[in-house]
Computed example of a mutant assay.
Amino acid sequence: MERVSGVSCTVGESPTWNAAEGAWYWVDIPARRVWRMDGASGAARSWDNAEMVACVSAKAGGGLIAGMETGIFSLELGAEPAARAIKLATPVSGLGEGMRFNDGRCDRQGRFWSGTMFMDMGAARPVGQLFRYDAARGISAPFVSELITQNGTAFSPDGRTMYLSDSHPTRRMVWAFDYDIDDGVPGNRRVFADMTSYAGRPDGAAVDADGCYWICGNDGGCVLRFTPDGKLDRRIDVPMLKPSMCAFGGKDLETLLVTSIVSGKPEDAEWGGAVVMLRPGVKGVAETLFGA
């Protein structure tokens, strides 16, 4: 396991590998920062933003699409220390005070999915919703509602299964949906993994080439792999108490990059907020660029 040197995040999230650039991206939410690391040299730099960036996916043609505090944005990352943010869409009903987007990624067809949450998790307000955005149709009506802390969005290798979690301590649930790859519509929601039976809360996720679902066990210091039928078959312990999201990447798609959150606990002081890379011995699935 290798630590990405010189990088520490308060709430590290949304790692993604851009194969076209040979680079990793991730965010630090409260810092309002987007990070990029070159896969070959390991050189890292960051861009600041006017509002919090919660999740990103790479766009065809360059730049990122992002779920932020007030909507879905296009981010252009240049030589300046700040990103150029262009708002693309806001939910028709609005976000409401104290809300923001949270976890998100593109489906296998290049449509962007992201959900909302009430930022004060202690309030446990089930007001989060899950949306789809594409350039042709704009932002959708919510497909899933009454979420507290939306997370864990991922798609099977063939794109026909969508995963979603709620990482709030009172929920700790992962669901699977049948996914219509032509229309971009999920259906037949069912419990995939009840995380109350396992270590940690279900945070961000990735899917490998075998169709297995890797979920970060936030507060559990581990990453768990579930088979497509929802059976736990592997656990990897990480040095951070609060791993937040994982992603496969590198030239061979065999590196797993894991972000984390500062817990504030003395035993987590050295590693909380770290970004690490490991080689779990399996291959990931290339992410589809938005708009590709």
Rank of each mutant, 00 (worst) to 15 (best):
Y179K: 13
D166T: 00
D210A: 14
V174G: 06
V207L: 07
W175D: 10
T161S: 09
V191A: 12
L147Y: 08
P169S: 09
P157Y: 01
T149S: 12
G152R: 00
D182R: 11
A154P: 02
V185H: 10
A193Q: 04
G211N: 01
I181M: 13
R172A: 15
G211P: 03
R160V: 06
G211K: 02
Y198S: 07
W214Y: 10
R190N: 11
G200V: 10
G204E: 10
R189Q: 15
N188M: 04
T196R: 14
A154S: 14
S197L: 15
S197R: 15
D203E: 04
W214S: 02
D183K: 14
A193H: 11
M162T: 04
P202Q: 05
N188E: 14
Q150F: 01
I181A: 13
D158M: 00
C212I: 09
N188C: 09
G159T: 03
L147M: 15
Y163N: 00
I215Y: 00
Y179D: 10
S167R: 07
T170I: 04
G184L: 11
M173G: 01
D158F: 05
M173E: 04
Y179A: 05
D178Y: 03
R201Y: 11
A209I: 04
D183P: 00
R172I: 03
G200F: 02
D210K: 06
I181R: 13
R190H: 12
D182F: 09
D203V: 08
P169W: 09
V185S: 05
Y213K: 01
D158E: 15
D210I: 00
W175Q: 08
D194Y: 06
R171K: 15
V185A: 12
P202L: 07
P169K: 05
T149R: 07
A199T: 09
I215G: 00
G204L: 04
A209N: 06
D210N: 14
A206N: 07
W175I: 05
G200H: 04
T149P: 00
A205R: 00
S165H: 02
V185K: 13
G159I: 09
D182M: 08
V185D: 12
G204T: 08
A199D: 14
M195G: 01
A205F: 03
R189T: 07
G184Q: 11
P202V: 13
R160Y: 10
G200M: 06
F192C: 07
A176C: 07
N188R: 15
V174R: 02
I148S: 02
R189V: 12
D208T: 03
D158N: 13
R171A: 14
A206C: 15
T170Q: 14
S165M: 01
M173D: 08
T161G: 09
F192Y: 13
F177H: 11
W214M: 10
